[in-house]
């Protein structure tokens, strides 16, 4: 499969990355090279293979939390890095539904 200009523009949009025309071209070249190379995976027969979900052993007991409140109440810390905030709210350009 090869990547098209439209693919690049669409994935840039989905990724929320704006690209100049030159960047679109250079990403197109890069992605095509990479995609060509990873296409060798099609040589592998995976018909009866299930995908890996994690390299963490599923036989291990996974961590779960008890239903207790032991976090939150740290608004100042939560807000401390915010580029734009007021009265303990994060501010963003107006969003209209």
């Amino acid at each position: 499969m090869s990547v098209t200009i439209d693919n690049v523009k669409k994935i840039a949009k989905l990724s929320k990355i704006s690209l100049s025309d030159d960047e679109v071209k250079s990403f197109l070249t890069d992605l095509n090279k990479i995609i060509d190379w990873v296409d060798q995976l099609t040589d592998v027969d995976t018909d009866k293979v299930s995908p890996t979900f994690s390299s963490f052993g599923l036989e291990e007991d996974t961590n779960q939390r008890n239903d207790v409140i032991k976090d939150g109440g740290c608004r100042d810390a939560i807000i401390s890095n915010a580029p734009n905030s007021e009265d303990g709210f994060f501010l963003v350009p107006k969003v209209i539904d």
Partner: peptide, 18 residues
């Protein structure tokens, strides 16, 4: 650009993200 880190301001949310 909303909760932490670098942020470029804009009056449109999608523009700000991009």
């Amino acid at each position: 650009g909303v909760r932490f880190g670098h942020s470029v301001s804009s009056d449109d949310i999608n523009n700000m993200y991009e």
